[in-house]
Amino acid sequence: MSLMVLFVLMGALALAAALGLLFARNAVYAALFLVLNMLALAVLYLTLGAPFLAMVQITVYAGAVMVLFLFVVMLLGAETLREEGGPIAWQRPLAAILGGVLVGTLSYILFVEATTGKILPPPEDYATPYALSVKLFQDYLLPFEVASVLLLVAMLGALVLVQIERKRRRNDDQTSD
């Protein structure tokens, strides 16, 4: 019962944070609302019995990815957004259509499939580190490795970009005497 209350509260908080993110004037405020959203999501995961996932969500998403977002926003000084022009003409109708598709699918699953028992409740310890690691390193090993290669490529790309910048700077140092 209390878990249900917490779930609804966190859901409402996540929704409010998402709306804040959409309507915030200031880019830093928007990022902070997103962080709040993620924290609410983490508590939602907790109520659903996935503590590992909740902690990892906070550590990785809210603690690393969003910090980097904030770094970029702050360094570029993009806190004050200006409305440049208006929305592109075909965006509003397309958004309405896609939004409608999303709402339709979700309501179908929620009200039809869930009640007819097509969705089974998860097993008791479906999200322990052990269970997760078994799945990750045995059944889904190939996607895991592909993802890590992708990250490696991104890191190498960043290094290369820095090297180019450094070489250009060193050339400038030598020529401007």
Binding site: M55, I58, T59, A62, G63
Partner: peptide
Amino acid sequence: VLYIMAVASI
């Protein structure tokens, strides 16, 4: 321990 890591990141 993961909780500690998470709070440290925050």
